[in-house]
Amino acid sequence: MSRIAVIGAGSWGTALAISLARRGGHSLTLWAHSPAHADDIAAARTNTRYLPGFPVPPSIRVTSSLSDAIAPQNQPAAEIILCVTPSQALRATLQQMIPALRPQQILLSASKGVEEKTYLRISEIMHELAPQNLVGTLGGPSFAQEVAAAMPTAITIATEDPALGERLQNDFTSESLRVYRNDDVPGTELGGALKNVIALAAGVVTGLELGNNVTAALITRGIAEMTRLAVACGGQRETLSGLSGVGDLVLTCTGGLSRNRTVGVELGKGRKLHEIIASLNGKVAEGVRTTTAALGLAQRHNVEMPITEQMHAVLYEDKSPQDAIRNLMTRPGRTE
Rank of each mutant, 00 (worst) to 15 (best):
T173G: 06
L164N: 09
A313N: 05
V179S: 05
A144S: 09
P321H: 04
T46E: 15
T118D: 10
R237L: 06
P162Q: 06
Q322C: 00
R61D: 12
L190I: 14
A44K: 08
N281G: 08
K283G: 03
S87E: 10
L94N: 11
E128C: 11
T227S: 06
A130Q: 07
L101F: 11
M329S: 08
S111R: 02
L82Y: 15
K117V: 05
A216G: 15
I219D: 03
V114C: 07
L164K: 13
K117F: 09
Q299D: 10
G13T: 14
I307V: 12
L249R: 04
Q299P: 02
N213W: 09
P55C: 10
R61W: 07
G235F: 00
G207E: 06
M305D: 08
L164R: 14
G136F: 05
A285V: 12
W31D: 03
A5R: 05
I60A: 02
I155K: 03
P52G: 09
L82Q: 04
S279Y: 00
R300H: 14
L134P: 04
E128P: 07
R45T: 07
L210D: 04
T335S: 14
R181T: 13
H33Q: 11
E115F: 01
A150V: 03
I18P: 10
G140Q: 12
I7C: 07
T159M: 10
T188S: 12
G256F: 02
D161E: 14
E275M: 00
K269V: 02
P58T: 13
G192D: 03
V250M: 07
E160G: 14
E128L: 15
V6F: 03
H26A: 11
R181D: 04
W31Q: 04
E79Y: 12
T335F: 12
A193C: 05
Q104L: 04
D161N: 15
A232V: 06
R271S: 14
L243A: 07
G268E: 08
V179C: 09
I7V: 14
N260Y: 07
L107H: 02
Y119S: 05
E116S: 11
R23N: 04
V197Y: 08
Q105R: 02
S67N: 13
M305E: 07
I4F: 06
D323M: 06
M311F: 00
A44H: 09
I155G: 01
Q105N: 05
